[in-house]
Design a protein around this nucleic acid. Sequence first.
DNA 1: ACTCGATATTGATGAGTGTCAACATAGACG
DNA 2: CGTCTATGTTGACACTCATCAATATCGAGT
Lengths: 116, 116
Amino acid sequence: MPTPEPADVVVPCCPPLTAGELSEADAERMAGMFKALSDPVRLRLFSRIASHPGGEACVCDIADVGVSQPTVSHHLKKLREAGLLTSERRGTWVYYAVAPSVLAALSATLAPRVAP
Amino acid sequence: MPTPEPADVVVPCCPPLTAGELSEADAERMAGMFKALSDPVRLRLFSRIASHPGGEACVCDIADVGVSQPTVSHHLKKLREAGLLTSERRGTWVYYAVAPSVLAALSATLAPRVAP
DNA sequence: ACTCGATATTGATGAGTGTCAACATAGACG
DNA sequence: CGTCTATGTTGACACTCATCAATATCGAGT
């Protein structure tokens, strides 16, 4: 039976870009993640969450990025759908957190070759 | 006087996403790079170049990705304009190469926090 | 139950983007 | 010089996306 590892597993998303030809499926998956990070507002929201203690923050703490409230909600949804954030409602407020291991996976994907 | 380091310097592009609030300018710059990587065709072109010996490849060697030749040219231009690739004409053929240190910079930007 | 504050959803709109066919440019080679 | 091959550019079109106003939902208090 497969071991149900809960949270700290690097997603088998994508091989390093320098490792060889990317399959069409991998390219599609990676492009989705990069697309989620390809907007300045989303990057600022993400960095605010990632730099908060515990890698989590209430929407009310990060929402002042210069766009309207629906737009903030829209961007957070995109980041969540891309697998970069998770959200949890606690009473009145909703907390977004950086999805575990996603940063490591993306970072590894972009890691340069060690030996040419 | 500033030391003119030629090739192996990490571009002062952007701080790690987990380091703190991203400035608007940094967010804009990073978003541009991620946007360049947010297309499956561009990712496949980039990975083909990055995985070639020397991190460089002739267009003729990577052009068969399922889209027309003008589209390939268009995507390579985008990658070049984003600072991810460099191009050089050698006789009949044009060679694209991974821009030095860009991969390291982006990878470092996505690096997870070491100590929460 | 009613209200209020926080967040999400809907619908509309303008800007941006991926794609291709047609054409242009640039070396190489006869 | 003319032709052939490799690559870039232009213009057009369909499609996606970021944004906002308006509205909905959801908890908490009163």
